[in-house]
Amino acid sequence: MAKHKKSIEFENISFSQERNSYTVLRFFPLKMSVDVMAYEDGVKAGVRNIPFAHLPKEIKKIIKPN
């Protein structure tokens, strides 16, 4: 039986949406979600968990869940 990773850590992957910018911290392949550090107007807003489907296409290509 294959061993599944619970999460995959990332560094230096960031993107912006509207006035917010995000840095991807880790990807959870079983839940298909990512933890991101959120910055609102340049101020750190904390860690958030967002679904993989809500990421921009450029970031999805970098993470490649398969």
Results as ranks from 00 to 15, higher is better:
Lys6Gly: 12
Tyr39Lys: 10
Lys57His: 09
Phe10Leu: 00
Lys5Met: 09
Asn12Gln: 08
Ser21Arg: 09
Lys61Tyr: 01
Phe28Thr: 02
Val43Trp: 01
Val43Ile: 15
Lys57Gln: 14
Ile63Phe: 01
Lys3Pro: 00
Ala53Trp: 07
Pro51Gly: 02
Leu55Asn: 03
Val34Asn: 01
Ser7Trp: 14
Asn20Asp: 12
Met37Lys: 10
Ile62Pro: 03
Asn49Ile: 15
Ile62Arg: 11
Ser16Trp: 04
Gly46Trp: 02
Asn49Lys: 11
Val36His: 01
Glu40Cys: 15
Ser16Ala: 14
Thr23Asn: 05
Glu18Ala: 13
Ile8Met: 11
Asn12Ile: 01
Lys5Ser: 05
Val24Tyr: 02
Asp35Ala: 12
Lys31His: 07
Leu30Ile: 04
Ile63Asp: 01
Lys61Glu: 04
Glu11Met: 10
Gly46Ala: 09
Ser16Asn: 05
Phe15Trp: 10
Ile59Pro: 01
Lys3Asp: 09
Lys57Pro: 00
Lys57Cys: 02
Arg26Tyr: 05
Val36Arg: 02
Asn12Ala: 01
His4Met: 06
Ala45Ile: 07
Phe27Thr: 00
Lys5Glu: 10
Phe15Glu: 05
Asp41His: 14
Ser16Met: 07
Leu30Arg: 08
Pro51Ser: 08
Ser21Phe: 05
Arg19Phe: 13
Phe27Tyr: 15
His54Ala: 09
Glu40Thr: 14
Glu11Asp: 10
Asn49Asp: 10
Phe52Thr: 06
Pro56Gly: 01
Tyr22Gly: 03
